[in-house]
């Protein structure tokens, strides 16, 4: 157990300090929130209608933006080999690593998601529901990004490839997470259902993705 804690602490520390920590995803999320209205137009009712959706969509992209650093660096600098030879079960090792990195870099997303929604004219209650859904979506988002990152580790300019691989897998969590905020805004009774489905997808991803990521790392070292 202490080995997993060692990995979790190391990855969180490295992600927090090096590579800009939370700055990368935060900056990307803010940029997306700023640009969307310039493209969509200032009409208040339109913006508030698309607000929750934009939050979910922008959060997804900011997780994708930092995906190649998750496992790409480890592949290159020899850490992945050493992790596989450390005797810790690869699936648990990967879960500890992704959890550490996600906490260190993605914690601002729900906060910005809530504030951003309010900036788009979404009332407080739906904005909070949207933020809660984002929080529930983070495990799925980061593990899927990790899976795509592990598959494409070490490939030059793998950003585009990771986005292409991860996009289909992000469809369910995006539908449910953005749906929670949108349903809350439109007042129909599906908001809670969407939130629970988001959490369900995240739990399923936590159960499955680590094995996929471990297999991907092993195959890329073969």
């Amino acid at each position: 157990m202490s080995a997993l804690r060692a990995i979790f602490m190391r990855e969180a520390r490295l992600a927090w300090a090096g590579g800009g920590g939370a700055a990368g995803p935060t900056a990307f999320f803010l940029a997306a929130i700023t640009l969307a209205p310039l493209a969509i137009g200032p009409a208040a009712d339109l913006l508030s209608a698309v607000g929750p959706g934009i939050m979910g969509f922008a959060a997804l992209l900011s997780v994708l933006q930092s995906a190649d650093r998750l496992f790409g660096d480890d592949h290159g600098d020899g850490t992945a080999e050493l992790y596989l030879l450390s005797g810790v079960s690869p699936a648990w090792l990967v879960l500890a690593k992704v959890t550490g990195q996600a906490l260190a870099t993605l914690w601002p997303l729900p906060v910005i998601g809530c504030l951003g929604a309010m900036m788009y004219g979404v009332p407080v209650q739906p904005a909070l529901m949207g933020a809660l859904a984002l929080l529930a979506a983070i495990p799925a988002l980061s593990l899927i990004a990790g899976f795509a990152g592990a598959l494409a580790a070490g490939i030059r300019r793998s950003g585009l490839l990771i986005a292409l691989i991860a996009t289909p897998m992000m469809v369910p969590v995006l539908i449910f997470a953005a749906g929670a905020g949108r349903s809350a805004f439109e007042g129909d009774e599906r908001a809670l259902a969407n939130l629970l489905l988001t959490a369900a997808v995240s739990l399923g991803t936590i159960a499955l993705a680590p094995f996929g990521i471990a297999a991907a790392i092993r195959s890329r070292l073969g």
């Binding site: 289909p168 469809v171 369910p172 539908i175 449910f176 749906g179 489905l197 997808v201 399923g204």
Partner: peptide, 9 residues
């Protein structure tokens, strides 16, 4: 899962 989520959506 996509099939289900898209139907729901």
């Amino acid at each position: 899962i996509v099939k289900f989520s898209v139907d729901w959506w």
